[in-house]
Design a protein around this nucleic acid. Structure first.
Lengths: 140, 140
DNA sequence: AAATTTATTGAGAAATTTTTTCAATAAGGA
DNA sequence: TCCTTATTGAAAAAATTTCTCAATAAATTT
């Protein structure tokens, strides 16, 4: 049983063909995929897969922190598998490829600074970088 | 002529009643508003305002960096007026109120770290914090 | 002021995206 | 193998966003 299967089981969820197909599609993609793309590609693995199930599953997997949502330049959202210990991603603005990084930045210091400036207590954050991947730096 | 009016004029855009209504609604809100909410509230100021115009105007104003899009916990997007010199926001998870902050963090250092780890060259970033505003810290 | 040019608008249609409903299915435990 | 019930697919419905097009009105020129 794979890692994510164990995670789902542990939360009392069932391991179904639809969920396996969706996670496999995500894990094999190098770029974020939309729900519709996930559905199309998933049907190659499990023909009866329906779009509603993709939405339901993505929402479930996001709660379980097994997939991550990224906000792309065009405004659309895409989904990626999430690796434990990697809270952040950097997107290539040219090819869309994504890399994860742990994010050992000085959040303590930032939190203190923001709290001083705004009065808000910092609890969480969304950080997403945009740049050029090694491959596109060569070609472009 | 207000600041944003000058900004729009300078880009050769026209100052219309619809745009004034939309920007006024945004500037008077303490929380991010959806396009539909902006339309409804805008119609109180300028009755014939249509939803299509709201979408077009938000897209325009976002390009001009006069409004900012924020990603909320429920997954929906909202819009806010953007202050020059403030690239980042912190959202209150309780009341939704937003504060801006300049973000003088050490991006150089972070960029170098990420480049070393991932090979990507960092060009831009999206940072959004979540926390509790002073008011909700008291009450909650 | 009036005429002219053309960006902008509102209304409605259309396209897209997301959620809901519900009977049928199948996963996991007994 | 049987039971319980989470999960599913299909279709409908709801919500969101974009597009089309004739009418309007903002800014410039006369």
């Amino acid at each position: 049983m794979s890692d994510w299967e164990a995670r789902l089981s542990a939360s009392g969820r069932r391991l179904t063909a639809a969920r396996r197909a969706i996670l496999q599609v995500l894990s094999e993609s190098t770029i974020p995929l939309s729900p519709l793309e996930i559905c199309r590609q998933g049907q190659a693995r499990y023909a009866p897969l329906g779009l509603a199930t993709v939405y339901r599953t993505l929402s479930l997997l996001e709660k379980e922190a097994l997939v991550r949502r990224v906000y792309q330049e065009n405004g659309a959202c895409g989904y990626l598998p999430a690796s434990p210990g990697h809270r952040h991603v950097i997107l290539c603005r040219s090819c869309g490829r994504v890399a994860e990084f742990p994010g050992n930045e000085d959040w303590e210091g930032l939190a203190a600074l923001v709290q001083q400036t705004t009065g808000y207590r910092v609890e969480d954050h969304l950080l997403q970088l945009v740049g050029l991947c090694p491959n596109c730096r060569q070609g472009g």
